[in-house]
Simulated assay, not measured.
Amino acid sequence: MPGGRSRGDVIATALARWIGPDTARAVVRTFSDRVLGMRPDEIRPEDVPRLLDALRPMLRTLLGQGPAEHVLAELEEALR
């Protein structure tokens, strides 16, 4: 990733605006472990769609459908 940041860091940074930095890091750590079976710094490009799909229900609950889809779209763009 540009700037030497991992995909997990990019996701956590984007989520931090909405759910706070500590919660965002915990969410990325938990979901990457449970969904992908890896640490956030090991997320590969091909893992991103599966991880974002897993985050969708939680984000819709916390943010509402519109804002959640906006955040996910931003993440998809940032992680290309």
Rank of each mutant, 00 (worst) to 15 (best):
residue 53 D to F: 05
residue 13 T to M: 15
residue 4 G to P: 07
residue 29 R to T: 14
residue 76 E to I: 11
residue 64 G to N: 10
residue 13 T to D: 14
residue 80 R to S: 12
residue 1 M to D: 13
residue 68 A to T: 04
residue 13 T to C: 09
residue 34 R to F: 15
residue 9 D to F: 10
residue 66 G to D: 15
residue 76 E to N: 09
residue 52 L to K: 05
residue 54 A to P: 03
residue 26 A to P: 03
residue 42 E to V: 05
residue 1 M to K: 13
residue 72 L to V: 13
residue 27 V to N: 04
residue 66 G to W: 03
residue 38 M to C: 15
residue 29 R to S: 15
residue 74 E to V: 12
residue 46 E to T: 10
residue 72 L to I: 13
residue 17 R to G: 11
residue 25 R to D: 14
residue 39 R to Y: 01
residue 15 L to R: 11
residue 33 D to T: 13
residue 68 A to F: 00
residue 19 I to C: 06
residue 62 L to Q: 10
residue 65 Q to L: 05
residue 17 R to W: 06
residue 48 V to E: 03
residue 42 E to L: 08
residue 25 R to N: 09
residue 40 P to M: 04
residue 47 D to A: 11
residue 44 R to F: 01
residue 66 G to M: 07
residue 48 V to F: 03
residue 54 A to H: 00
residue 62 L to P: 01
residue 11 I to P: 06
residue 60 R to D: 04
residue 10 V to A: 13
residue 48 V to K: 04
residue 9 D to H: 15
residue 69 E to C: 08
residue 80 R to W: 00
residue 74 E to R: 13
residue 31 F to E: 12
residue 47 D to G: 04
residue 31 F to V: 08
residue 15 L to W: 00
residue 28 V to S: 02
residue 43 I to V: 08
residue 7 R to N: 11
residue 11 I to K: 06
residue 39 R to K: 07
residue 62 L to T: 03
residue 59 L to G: 01
residue 54 A to L: 07
residue 14 A to Q: 12
residue 80 R to Y: 00
residue 78 A to Q: 13
residue 12 A to M: 07
residue 67 P to Y: 10
residue 15 L to G: 06
residue 64 G to W: 05
residue 55 L to M: 02
residue 36 L to W: 08
residue 3 G to N: 14
residue 33 D to V: 14
residue 56 R to G: 07
residue 30 T to I: 09
residue 66 G to Y: 06
residue 54 A to T: 02
residue 16 A to P: 02
residue 75 L to E: 00
residue 3 G to V: 12
residue 9 D to A: 10
residue 48 V to G: 10
residue 29 R to Y: 08
residue 79 L to W: 05
residue 46 E to L: 13
residue 43 I to H: 02
residue 22 D to T: 08
residue 31 F to Q: 09
residue 73 A to V: 12
residue 33 D to M: 14
residue 80 R to T: 11
residue 11 I to T: 01
residue 51 L to F: 03
residue 50 R to I: 11
residue 20 G to L: 05
residue 13 T to F: 13
residue 39 R to V: 04
residue 23 T to R: 11
residue 60 R to H: 04
residue 40 P to D: 00
residue 60 R to W: 03
residue 2 P to D: 15
residue 76 E to R: 14
residue 66 G to P: 01
residue 56 R to S: 07
residue 25 R to Q: 13
residue 35 V to C: 01
residue 18 W to E: 12
residue 1 M to I: 15
residue 1 M to P: 15
